[in-house]
Design a protein around this nucleic acid. Structure first.
Lengths: 232, 232
DNA sequence: CGCCGCGTTGAGGCAGCTCAATCTACGTGG
DNA sequence: CCACGTAGATTGAGCTGCCTCAACGCGGCG
């Protein structure tokens, strides 16, 4: 990570203003916390934190895209969150200080804003609405995770992939820059199975593909096959 | 549900004192919230709340056992939580008021204590430590749910069942009163597959079974095969 | 230019789901 | 007290989705 000195106070306040979980907090408080924040720059593929790291800071993405994932002992990974501007990387850690089974890495060149744990905690105690917001976000994440377990049980790979594609479409638009491995880590399957399913979708004219890129041609067909979307 | 008038204030305070998420709250505050609480009695199998119900109250189990589960459109169910005395049924709902995809029913004769949402909310704002505790619990639940997704991906049924049995053993002791269907809803599989796996474990002398009951004979063998337990 | 990672497709194998038959424990009502 | 119905336990047989391994082409990057 490189220290980034370019982002001034004004920009940091702007970031916090639109940050997920900071709705309803007065500007004066946002300025206080922006004062305490520092900024880091990360290259594509660079790690932001590892599993088992004790949590020392609250982190929000300011620029770029960051993948937060759960790893297993056998080397498998599952993508838990794709965080863009304004999205926090770790909502629980700052409150407990304990490590989680999560790791984060930059998917593209990214800037991340850090607030030290004790500064964040006293900010949260001054503004309890933040904690309500965090609880509400965790609730959605929990529902999404439970939904994924259900889907693993009863939905075939192709349906899970459709849900992933629809979710990504809602977040990023029609052009999705992900490899089959990345999609597999989102859908809970293998890259080969993803490729086969995408092959069928391509045959039906629903998507078109190029190396490392996928374009949604008929988003309405995706929407029909998904009752609910993921929280990614 | 039958109104239960037997539980006096003193008992309710005792319940809150040992309730999960209420650590570190002064007795004076516990008494205030105990004042606002009401109690309901439920028969085995009776529903406590349904999916899609908007959340109107915070609920803690006082007696018996309550199953909280996620349902799917195709009729499948997954058990999310088995709540005993002192365990809350819905941590997010009281804060958001929104329905979740969860339903709760009594597994055995049960008593549940309810605190109306606005009373609980003002209690939480007076005692922010409660919100910290809730966030910490949600973090564990989220890690457990993510772990379950990973397990569905890479662990065979038998290993998932071992983890379920070990978790239940840690919570309830060596004698477990669950049917194969209930175990299947915990392990994310079918009753038949559970029975086949249990048959193997019985052959190895690890468990013994009777109708609706299972006894752990060699808990040490269970422990060895599980690196982490579930949050149920 | 050579290497590496990705995309693509084929073949093979197996875990576990589904369906089905049977047996047993238990509760209920006559 | 017994007949009966229901729900769980048990086991077998069959099928299939998808994971695994493998081969090959291609594009990008050092």
């Amino acid at each position: 990570m490189a220290k980034d000195l370019e982002m001034d106070l004004e920009e940091r306040v702007n970031l916090f203003r639109c940050a997920m979980g900071f709705q309803g907090i007065p500007d004066s408080e946002l300025e206080k916390i922006a004062h305490e924040a520092s900024v880091g720059s990360f290259e594509t593929g660079e790690a932001i934190f590892f599993e088992e790291d004790p949590c020392k800071s609250y982190c929000v993405v300011a620029e770029g895209l960051v993948r937060v994932s759960v790893g297993s002992s056998s080397g498998n990974r599952m993508t838990y969150l794709l965080a863009g501007r304004g999205e926090p990387l770790n909502l629980v850690g700052p409150f407990t200080g304990l490590p989680r089974l999560l790791s984060a890495e930059a998917v593209s060149k990214a800037k991340v804003v850090f607030v030290k744990r004790d500064a964040f905690l006293s900010f949260a105690f001054r503004n309890p609405q933040v904690m309500i917001n965090v609880i509400s976000i965790l609730g959605k994440a929990l529902d999404s995770a439970n939904g994924r377990v259900m889907d693993m049980m009863e939905k075939p790979v192709e349906e899970r992939l459709l849900k992933v594609l629809y979710t990504l479409y809602r977040k990023f638009g029609v052009t999705l820059c992900f490899t089959s491995r990345e999609l597999a880590e989102l859908a809970g399957t293998t890259p080969e199975s993803v490729l086969r399913a995408i092959g069928r979708l391509r045959g039906l004219g629903i998507v078109s593909t190029a190396r490392g890129r996928l374009v949604i041609k008929q988003s309405n067909l995706l929407a029909e096959s998904c009752e609910n979307i993921l929280w990614i």
